[in-house]
Computed example of a mutant assay.
Amino acid sequence: MIGYVTIGVSDMEKAKTFYTELLSGMGAKLLVDMGRIAFIGESMKGPSLAVCTPFDGEPNHPGNGNMLAFWPGSKEAVDTYYQKAIELGATCDGEPGQRIEDQFYGAYVKDQDGNKMAFYHFG
Rank of each mutant, 00 (worst) to 15 (best):
Y19H: 12
P59M: 05
I40Y: 01
D33C: 08
L31F: 12
T53D: 01
K16E: 07
G46N: 13
D33W: 08
E13V: 05
E13P: 01
A28V: 09
S10V: 05
I7V: 14
M26H: 01
D11V: 10
L30I: 14
T17G: 11
I37E: 10
S10P: 01
G27A: 00
K29Y: 05
T20P: 06
I7H: 01
K29M: 12
Y19N: 12
L22S: 03
G35L: 03
A50F: 02
A15K: 01
G57K: 04
T17K: 13
T20G: 07
H61M: 12
M44A: 08
I40P: 05
G8V: 04
I7L: 08
K14Y: 02
I40C: 06
L30F: 13
Y19A: 12
S43F: 00
S24R: 01
F55K: 12
D56E: 06
I7G: 03
G35W: 04
P54Q: 07
P59G: 06
M34I: 10
G35S: 07
E58W: 01
F39G: 07
A50W: 02
G27L: 00
V9N: 00
T20N: 07
N60H: 11
L49Y: 08
S10C: 01
G25S: 13
A50T: 07
D56K: 00
G41F: 03
I40A: 05
V32E: 10
D56N: 13
S24Y: 00
T17F: 09
T17L: 09
E13K: 08
V9L: 00
S10R: 13
T53N: 11
Y19G: 13
F39M: 13
G41S: 04
G25D: 15
V32A: 08
M44S: 08
T53M: 15
E13I: 04
H61R: 14
K14E: 07
F55C: 04
K45G: 11
R36M: 15
C52G: 14
E13F: 03
D33R: 06
V9C: 04
K29E: 15
P47K: 09
E13C: 02
D11A: 04
K45Y: 10
G8R: 00
G27Q: 00
P54M: 11
N60W: 06
T20Y: 03
P54L: 10
I7A: 02
L31Y: 04
V51Q: 02
G41H: 03
P59W: 03
G8A: 09
R36N: 15
E21T: 14
R36K: 15
V32M: 11
S48L: 06
A38F: 05
Y19C: 13
P47D: 10
A38N: 04
K14G: 04
S24C: 00
G41L: 03
T53R: 14
E42M: 14
K29R: 15
V32Q: 11
M44F: 04
S24G: 02
M34D: 10
C52N: 12
G46H: 11
G25K: 10
I7C: 05
R36E: 14
F18R: 08
V9D: 01
A15G: 06
A28F: 15
V32R: 11
E42D: 11
K29G: 15
M34K: 12
